[in-house]
Design a protein around this nucleic acid. Structure first.
Lengths: 190, 190
DNA sequence: GCAAATTAATGATTTATTCAAG
DNA sequence: CTTGAATAAATCATTAATTTGC
């Protein structure tokens, strides 16, 4: 056979759609558990590995930001060029602007249900300090060990009815706000 | 009690020693298989995970390079200052210089036996083109899937006599010196 | 001598850059 | 040219050294 095949993953439209929806839903850097679940889910639509999901989110995030930055940079350049010719309208909030703001840091993270199709969105009210630095703060996380071995001979495992990840660990809340225990070290002076 | 334990891995002296020996032996970016083996081996000396090994090599490599770069940069500054006062000795090959050259890209990679204790070192002669980009060029590689679960309840598994990884895959040679083939691409135009 | 406070090392994560397949 | 894959650089955060006041 010589399945030299494609060295790189080629996402199917469904996979891509779902991934984008997830991204739009606020997921930026899924943790290992999430990646596993997402991979399991997407593997239903075609061959896929955890690292593909991982890379996809990384690249997508980076390139969206890059794209926006370029756009904004261009806008600023234009502003420089015009230098307030006669300030027609101060700033009429372009969609790009909104998009930029939105992409700055997405406060959503409603990991309750990663897949959008289900739809629930509890409005995610009362997000106090949210984020902070988007860090994962020690916990489980990324790491190696993909195929190395026989490497998933067949991927399209129907997985039965697809239980759509119940998020094993705790219920859901408290995703990266891991500051639950010995958080007393807030005396960082500075 | 309450083994909230340390969030981060704390390498034991033995682990560190072995890792450093491996690094000195030429290993810079071990692939998944190697990481697995190294982890298995080191887990004999204390709790450790694959990601720790991965991170260690990344950090160590980066910081060694950084250290050297700073040193060289300083040397160059001195050269600028002196500007060949009267070229005493053109260049007497300081150890730093040698180290720098060596660290540029290590041609060794005698993965025949990662662990030094065994000692073999075939002099690794004939390192022709070496490096070029140090990339892994599609292949197996890093990825997630760590514990997520109970996370290695006990780590110090004696592993019997410790067979010291036989490097399952191919025999040994040809690690990442993948440039052994189409090395003729010197026509990079630019 | 010791514990709190600073600083230095270094483990862990994220971001930017680069390479190459399609 | 787009984008998946991979690495390097930058950054954060925590632990170990160390200094300092008592």
């Amino acid at each position: 056979m010589s399945p030299a095949a494609s060295t790189r993953w080629c996402p199917t439209p469904e996979q891509l759609m779902i991934l984008e929806e997830m991204y739009r839903g606020g997921i930026r850097t899924p943790n290992a558990t999430q990646i596993q679940q997402i991979t399991a889910h997407l593997s239903f639509y075609g061959k896929i590995e955890g690292k593909n999901v991982f890379y996809w989110f990384q690249n997508h995030k980076a390139r969206e930001r890059q794209k926006l930055r370029r756009k904004l940079s261009r806008q600023q350049q234009q502003q420089q060029q015009q230098q307030y010719p006669h300030h027609h309208f101060l700033h009429q909030i372009d969609p790009s602007d909104a998009a930029a703001a939105a992409l700055q840091q997405i406060p959503l993270y409603n990991s309750t249900q990663i897949v959008p199709q289900i739809g629930g969105l509890k409005e995610s009210s009362s997000n106090d300090d949210i984020e902070r630095s988007t860090r994962m703060y020690g916990r489980d996380w990324m790491m190696m060990m993909m195929d190395v071995g026989p490497a998933t001979p067949c991927c399209n495992r129907p997985l039965k009815t697809l239980q759509l990840f119940p998020i094993t660990t705790s219920s859901s809340l408290k995703d990266e706000c891991t500051t639950s225990d010995h958080l007393s070290c807030s005396t960082s002076s500075d």
